Simulated assay, not measured.
Amino acid sequence: MLKFHFTDADMARIRMAGGPDPLWELLLSLHLLGGHDGSVVFGAWKRRIRNRLPGSTRLLLDLAPPRGYSADFLTPAPDRGGLETGIDAVLSTPRGGLRRDIARLAAARNLGARTLSLAEAGSDAMRSLGAALRGYYDVALRPYWAEVRNAIEADRALRARALLDGGTEGMLSTLHPSLRWQPGVLTVASAYDRDIRLDGRGLLLLPSFFCWRAPITLRDPGLPPVVVYPVAHDLGWSRADDGRGHDAREALGTLLGRTRADVLAAVADHGGSTSDLARRLVVSPASVSQHAAALRDSGLIVTQRRGQSVHHSATTLGSALLEGNLQIPQEPSRSC
């Protein structure tokens, strides 16, 4: 059992993450990809991505095996800056932290030469790690980020109601069946026995789409305390992509480029300001602004100013392209 011990100051510093964390979702999706769990919920997703993954995914699977310890440095403290900010934090891990985490991994299993080289924090090794993280995210997570975000927003709404109805203690008691709250102590079912004293640092609660079966935390007690717990899933979330809508978006990604197609899909989904879209897509506002300008020039979105910000929405043409419903009339035949 893991036991988190709270002081009064810790109770005042319990926080709920504002949305999905790209690096935690990346890590936990690697656990699922490398193992056999969750086939009912994640089986279609695994089949869809497995043959598309870059070869560099092997490095990530070394760092995040489906059982046992995963490298703590892959999940720095969650930051609303998005994927690139998180990757920058990973690549800035001090050499001592890299050596410690790699040594823990190597004590349990054989590691590839590229993985072992990370312990020295060499520039080539770290560039390879950054490229591997980006390449995996683009194939395994980016096309499904709307589903991830929506499921986590639904969970946050549930926790907000639990907090209003039962206070902080009531909310903690509803997070997951394997979490048990007693005055001053949050117990997490685990194969390891450990007491974690928060000592005024508070606790971050992080709902996760790819977390499966049970909540988890970081191995290193000196890192910012976090409990990552699974959210509820629609069992058909990835199988729904097997139809024409997914094929249309794949083709659109080839035509426009993946990020530009994602911006169009996000605009068609709920619309929003440039900063809203950047947060949802885990890209920079400058990137969204650039792609939005190109989509607007092509007649796929419209942009309206609302006070100090702008709001983007899809045109009929943009929505039709996303859904694969665009019908282009044929030229009338001409007789000679």
Rank of each mutant, 00 (worst) to 15 (best):
R142C: 01
R99S: 06
S117V: 07
L206P: 04
P143E: 07
L164V: 10
V188N: 11
D155I: 03
A154P: 03
W212V: 13
R100N: 09
G112S: 13
L205W: 12
A106P: 08
D155K: 11
A146L: 11
L218Q: 14
L141W: 08
D155M: 12
A89E: 13
G97L: 01
D165Y: 00
R114K: 13
T174P: 05
S173C: 00
A214V: 03
L206N: 00
A154K: 08
E153W: 06
G96E: 14
R142P: 00
S208W: 07
A132T: 10
R104Y: 01
A108D: 11
A191L: 14
L129V: 00
E169I: 00
H176N: 05
L158C: 14
M171Y: 02
L116Y: 07
R149M: 09
L206F: 00
A103F: 06
R95D: 11
G130R: 07
L206H: 10
Y192T: 15
P215L: 08
G130I: 08
A119S: 11
G135R: 10
V185H: 00
D193C: 08
G166W: 03
G184V: 10
I102D: 09
L91Y: 03
D138H: 11
A160F: 08
R197T: 05
G167K: 12
A106M: 04
S92T: 13
D124P: 02
L158F: 12
G130H: 10
V90N: 08
G135T: 04
R95K: 14
D165P: 03
L218P: 07
G122M: 08
C211T: 12
R99Q: 14
I102V: 14
D101S: 07
M171H: 05
A140T: 01
T115E: 09
S117T: 04
A151S: 15
R127Q: 13
L141I: 08
L133K: 07
P143A: 05
L186Y: 03
A160P: 01
L205S: 05
S173R: 15
F209A: 02
A191G: 15
R114F: 05
R180I: 09
A154M: 12
A131M: 09
G112W: 01
A107Y: 09
D195Y: 11
A131K: 13
A214D: 15
L206D: 03
T217I: 01
I87G: 03
E147C: 02
P183K: 12
R149A: 14
G96M: 10
R100L: 12
V185Q: 11
T115V: 07
V148I: 15
W181F: 03
L164Y: 08
T85K: 11
Y144E: 06
D199I: 02
G86R: 05
A154R: 15
S123N: 11
R100M: 08
R159K: 14
S117C: 10
Y192D: 15
V90S: 06
G200H: 08
G97F: 01
I196M: 15
A189M: 04
G135E: 01
A214H: 13
D124C: 06
L175E: 06
T174R: 14
P207R: 03
P177I: 09
P183E: 14
V90I: 00
N150W: 13
D138S: 12
R149P: 02
